[in-house]
Nucleic acid binder design. Structure first.
Length: 418
RNA sequence: CGGAGUGUAGUGAACUGGCAUCACGCUUCGUUCGGGACGAAGAGACACUGGGUUCGAUUCCCAGCACUCCGACCA
């Protein structure tokens, strides 16, 4: 991609209507634009990150047997009345059409999915079943805040599992824990599995919490990794020694990036979702649900991976693999850079080539702000040795390191893709 | 939803009861060219909305709206 053609610009000043790091940086770097409080638009750079994250989640959900589908955002009132959540779900967006008909804008999808499953599942042979989607959710938050961290419209992955019995649900629940651990690890986050309130469904749920000052949750956890509880439910005191000898339990602020629940038969009962078991008796389907806030995850990564110059994306979710820069517009430099750009693309490197006619300093500053993990520079220096003899090198520098090296194209490709 | 703060050009800021100012960005020209360069010439604003006070309001007052933060809330 040529930078000169990329829709979206970096801005030098930090926007005055944003306080959170994630919103300030992502807006300045040209990833997102605010629509209104709690609602953001994703520009091409931002969408690339969203897609990278989404695809990692897809891979893990598919590995866990999930089938992707896409459910409606506009939902019928009757289903929400069936579950008692038309009035029972505080953050439910309700809208009235020009014909005075009322609808819900989906904050979650049990009310849509369960009736569909109910029509298609009737035997134990149809179970278990794992269905998920990645889709915009709407929640009428009393107060949206912190950029992408708490929005009124946000992207979420929600998977629903359907089982013949509690044992099977519990087994899958454990399997999902592994899938979740894998997702967060792959996107570069250290997410702590945390015991939390089960809401109206069950005694407990498990949350995935990332330690971050700007988070609105608080956990008490063992640094050794064998214990973590949300302080909303925890009765454990900070400073207490870990039972397994890992030291003192600590209290920290966190961002909740995922939450998994055992719904059991709550929605099956509401919608009459039953199946016939092997001996022909009818039973309610047991359910679990498993959510990851995709856009919140992006915001969390922005909160964690940055410095005073800008973003420092983990390679797995970066909008591009590498950013290519020239420091001048002389013919030899430009010709060489054009050639390198093509060869990188041919080798499968997703590269953002800053071909603008601006000074080097501006390109460097923008590259640091955008935060692509690898910066490649082509200049007089890389094309000529100290003795004046011609050479064909590329300066390779990682965003999160200070040192740079002069490398051959092949070595660059190897390092970027490796 | 309670409390506080802020609304002026695409962005960030200033000033003022009497023709609205600056920087960045943008357009054109020239000089520059490894860390947001320099010079010259331009374009760009119903000063959030509505009311009030006043000869005159962007400025003072009231109401509303929007955004941010704190709190409450967050299946």
């Amino acid at each position: 991609m040529l930078y000169s053609k990329l829709f979206g610009k970096t801005i030098k000043e930090t926007p005055k209507d944003e306080e959170s790091i994630n919103a300030k940086l992502l807006i300045r770097a040209g990833f997102i634009r605010k629509e209104m409080a709690g609602v953001y638009n994703f520009l091409p750079l931002g969408l690339r990150v969203i897609n990278k994250i989404s695809n990692i989640i897809r891979e893990e959900m598919n590995t866990a047997g999930g089938q992707e589908l896409l459910l409606s955002s506009l939902q019928k009132k009757e289903s929400w009345e069936t579950t008692g959540r038309w009035t029972g779900f505080d953050a439910l967006f309700k809208l009235t059409s020009q014909f005075e008909k009322e609808y819900a804008l989906g904050p979650t999808h049990e009310e849509v999915l369960v009736p569909i499953v109910s029509g298609l599942v009737s035997s134990y042979k149809d179970l278990p079943l794992y269905l998920y989607q990645i889709q915009n959710k709407f929640r009428d938050e009393a107060r949206a805040k912190a950029g992408l961290l708490r929005g009124r419209e946000f992207l979420m992955k929600d998977l629903y599992s359907f089982h013949t019995d509690e044992k099977d649900l519990a087994d899958y629940y454990e399997k999902m824990k592994k899938a979740y651990a894998s997702v967060f690890k792959r996107v570069g986050l250290d997410a702590i599995q945390t015991r939390a309130s089960g809401g109206t469904f069950s005694e407990f749920s498990d949350e995935y919490q990332v330690i971050c000052e700007s988070g609105e949750d608080e956990i008490i956890y063992c640094p050794g990794g064998d214990f973590s509880e949300n302080t909303e439910i925890s009765k454990v005191a900070e400073g207490k020694q870990c039972d397994l000898g890992h030291g003192a339990l600590a209290k920290v602020k966190t961002i909740e990036v995922g939450n998994i629940f055992q719904l059991k038969d709550k929605y099956s009962k509401a919608f009459g979702l039953k199946f016939k078991d092997k001996i022909g008796s009818e039973k309610f389907v047991m359910m679990g649900c498993y959510g990851i806030g995709v856009s919140r995850l992006m915001g969390t990564i922005a909160e964690v991976y940055n410095d005073e110059k800008g973003m420092k994306w983990p390679a797995s979710v970066a909008p591009f693999d590498a950013q290519l820069i020239t420091t001048n517009n002389s013919q030899p430099t430009t010709n060489n850079a054009n050639k390198v750009y093509k060869e990188l693309q041919r080798a499968g490197v997703d590269v953002l080539y800053d071909d603008r006619d601006v000074r080097a300093g501006e390109k460097f500053a923008d590259a640091d702000l955008i935060g692509i993990p690898v910066r490649l520079v082509i200049s007089e220096k890389t094309l000529r040795q100290g003795s004046g003899q011609a050479q064909d090198k590329i300066e390779f520098k990682k965003r999160d390191e200070e040192k740079s090296e002069l490398l051959d194209l092949n070595e660059v490709i190897k390092r970027v893709l490796g």
